[in-house]
Amino acid sequence: MAFRIVLDGIEREIDIIRRRPHLVLSINGREHVVQNPGDGKTGLGTLTIADQSLKFAQVETPEGVVLRLGGRTYSAELLAEGEASDNMASSNLHAPMPGAVVAIDVAIGDTVATGDAILTIESMKLQMVLSAPRAGIVENILVAEGESFGKDQLLANLADETEGDANA
């Protein structure tokens, strides 16, 4: 999961390498271990970086995040965020509204990436594409072309591509 941020006016590439047991970040290629980085909700805490314990406070502003760390103030702006972590996304494709299937864009067993079209549906004169919420293999397609469905009905689901590959 990679980010580009502007920190104190300088653009940096940040990659999250590991979250557990400690957060390990790569900032412009150099690795840093961060302990107790807070929960991101309260905006206050004490974190440990390079064995040094530092108090921090953060607040979001229209321009980005202002961070007070170890007595110094930093500003950071998020430029681009990587795709949301796949394992957070659902494997199930539910109908957002009642409608009918216009087209099925995949077959059972197909490998799909996040955002790939699975079904095209039509409701209230408007067609929309339902796309894969995460990467995986199409396990089931529970509707046929032309078939009507109700709101929240399960239309298709995905299975994991390969089991047990935690580092992927």
Binding site: E122, K125, L126, Q127, M128, V129
Partner: peptide
């Protein structure tokens, strides 16, 4: 972005 068919969202 604007679709080539009024039906497409």
């Amino acid at each position: 972005i604007i679709p080539n068919d009024i039906k497409k969202s």
